[in-house]
Design a protein around this nucleic acid. Structure first.
Lengths: 212, 212
DNA sequence: TTCTACACGTGACGC
DNA sequence: TGCGTCACGTGTAGA
């Protein structure tokens, strides 16, 4: 590469503006004060670089943000887990276990009349009783063994058959589960697509509660 | 600063190993091939720098990790919120609203006998009935209006007084709430520190259910 | 060609 | 002193 005369500063500059010594260099057997064309550009470039480096430095404490985010995520995860668990437990309790919270540990005093449900159960009256109210409504009374999952199974079975319970009463004792209320039967749910008879409905319900 | 003879390479090296031109410089009116003392050190330093820069570059895709973490956190947050809401709703439903899910919309068929609870309610038999079983146990039968919060209030009041329900039956109709079961009374909970009489307990319970 | 980005060798400075 | 780091001015390759 060759340099024209305009590339050389011919004055006796021994110090540049920032106090550093200007360099003497040999070029084509001449020694002169030389100033590269891109000197200022390079200075600006370096300036920008260090600025960016400082900016990066200022972002460095965001490492703590990452840490914080990590612990926060862990917190949220455990929260989600415990909530899910609680919810499931409550669902199970709600649909399948007890009617009133904090009420299970102690057996019933023998001298207390535990409603007719006890009589029904001890007299082995478990089963389904139905009475037609109108075309789509039935009065229903079901007594089954109160075992884990039995209520849920009943509900699911009724749901599949398109039977909907309305304003139902539910009594649970240690051994028996008593359901009484109004049941809505959707039309055309029978295998033959016709209206179900009370007898058929009773049979379906009995099938559900006798399933193991 | 002065340089000893050992600082100067006196050979005619015009090209360094990487093909770049060695510099000729003037020093003490002599022109020789000069090699700075920290040349190698500086080379190594630069090498390390660029290595680190590349390493930083390889970490750069972790920006996506941050993005992922952000969206993940948002997901978890909404999950927590919905679960909490669901739980609260279920708690409310569970303790205060209905006994059986999906069973509320339709009024009871008029011709259905809704248990004695209906009779109790229509005959204005609301209130508290108690019978002592042993020193700390009572049989209890409570009928109150089934309004939002009434059951919760009762439970809270009983809790404050140290009364604990054991194996309770609960029936809810649209208008009335029937609670029957066994109640354990902790000793020394009376204002005077002495055992509570059945009469006092009855009064306390009546106070709770008559509170607005 | 010019312009930009980069690596180089170097002197200065702090420990 | 010696060692590591930095900013500087420069040459040059690529666009």
């Amino acid at each position: 590469m060759e340099y024209g005369v305009e590339d050389w500063l011919c004055g006796d500059i021994e110090e540049s503006e920032n106090g550093r010594m200007g360099r003497k260099r040999e070029y084509n057997d001449e020694i002169r004060e030389y100033k590269s064309k891109n000197l200022e550009t390079e200075r600006r470039r370096r300036e920008k670089l260090s600025t960016r480096l400082l900016m990066l430095r200022s972002l460095m404490n965001k490492a703590t943000i990452i840490d914080d985010a990590t612990t926060y995520i862990k917190e949220l995860q455990s929260k989600v887990e415990s909530l899910t668990q609680e919810l499931h437990q409550m669902e199970a309790t709600y649909s399948d276990e007890k009617t009133v919270k904090n009420v299970d540990e102690v057996e019933v005093a023998e001298d207390i009349n535990k409603w007719e449900i006890q009589a029904y159960y001890s007299l082995n009256l478990r089963g389904v009783r139905l009475a037609q109210i109108d075309t789509n409504k039935l009065w229903v009374k079901i007594i089954i063994e109160n075992k884990r999952g039995s209520f849920k199974k009943l509900m699911e079975g009724m749901n599949i058959l398109g039977f909907e319970l309305l304003d139902t009463n539910l009594i649970k004792t240690k051994g028996a589960l008593f359901i009484e209320g109004c049941m809505q039967v959707t039309l055309g749910k029978g295998a033959d697509g016709e209206r179900l008879s009370v007898h058929q409905i009773k049979k379906y319900l009995q099938d559900i509660i006798s399933e193991k």
